[in-house]
Amino acid sequence: MNAKKASLLKDQGESSVWKKNNIAALEYCDLHRAAELLNCRVDDLLHWAEIGAIELCLKFSGLKASLKHIELSSKYRRNPAEWIRNRLTTGYFDKYLATKNNQLSGLMPIIGPEPKINDDGTFEQEFYFEKPLPALICHIFGVWGLITFRHDNFFASLKSSGKTQVTGLNLHLKPADEDLTMDSIRLQPSSELFDEFDGLMQPAQTLFTITPSDLFITRKQIEKIFIHDGKVIPNYINGGVDSPQEIAPSAVSEEINLNKNMLGGLIDMLICSVPELGQDVANASTNKKRDLLEAFLAEKQKLNHLVDYSIPGYDTFSKYFKN
């Protein structure tokens, strides 16, 4: 018996959620089916997702997305094609390519019509990247984990109103069930689908609206809930897990000056004009400023104010300010 089969059998113990329900394990299912299996409510699943205890997913069949990686915005910023070639050569992308059948999350980079022929006779495939901070443009397939932040209103809206609006700014994705590290790939909808300035001067453009029925949960997350039956499950509140924004970014090797249009100065002026924010927030570091604005917006939305607005992700927000 090989190691993989032995591991699978070990995971299927007598007390497993699958044994209890007399069914073979499901690799993923929707929230309503998961609630039946776990003898809980859909709102319980949304609550555990909101506090970071579990990961929920959306399923895609070809959404155009931009793939981000810390090295693309630093070491390979001037030559992103070299990054993708190196990663393909080392097999880094093997587990993500949609041509494989053994993964939950799949992607397919968008490539040029014909490979470039170099002087030495070798072929070089052309890939497409978004600018100014390079992001590989691709199509995504299968289930992808939602990255949400501590003050997000994403799951709270699903619980309170039964739906939430997905924009290019509040949809952050990662491969399902993978730990989020600095070497992780992260995806957002391609900027072709929305205006990246939305959410700063006007409400972010809605790409689509989802309900709890559109969400999925993987076998790993179902089993995590089951083994904590009647116990405290690690989450943001009890300090058992770290929220994504608490993962400190690596040092960027080059200074990136993207404040050419002085939009950052305009944002700081507007911040100073809000009594609850003021000069202290305007003078804060870029990441701290975003955290404070996100917390301020979350408090306003609890009062049903500014509900159509969202704070851009860290990558987008940092573009408007000098380092």
Rank of each mutant, 00 (worst) to 15 (best):
L173I: 04
M1H: 13
E130S: 12
L146P: 05
L8F: 06
W144Q: 05
Q12R: 12
A156K: 09
P312F: 05
D229G: 09
V241R: 12
D315I: 12
A24N: 14
F93W: 15
L67V: 12
E71F: 06
D30V: 10
P212F: 08
K319E: 09
D268Y: 00
D198I: 05
L37C: 05
N118V: 11
P132V: 12
N235D: 12
S310W: 02
D242K: 15
F154V: 11
Q12H: 11
Y76R: 04
Y236I: 07
I210V: 15
L200P: 02
Y320W: 01
D119V: 14
S243M: 11
I227M: 01
L297R: 11
E276K: 01
F296T: 04
R186A: 10
N118Q: 13
V17R: 04
D11G: 10
T167M: 08
L258Q: 09
A282I: 00
A24P: 13
I111W: 00
L173Q: 02
K100M: 13
R150Y: 13
L292S: 01
P312A: 10
K260H: 08
S243F: 07
Q165I: 08
K220G: 06
P249D: 14
G199E: 04
L277V: 01
I51W: 02
P109N: 00
N22I: 04
P175C: 11
K64P: 07
D198Y: 05
S7D: 13
L146W: 02
K288W: 00
V232S: 11
S191V: 09
K64F: 08
K302W: 05
Q188A: 12
S161C: 07
F129Y: 06
K159N: 02
K64A: 08
L45V: 06
C138P: 00
S250R: 15
Y92M: 14
S250L: 15
K159W: 01
T316I: 12
L263Q: 08
L207Q: 15
T89Q: 14
A98W: 05
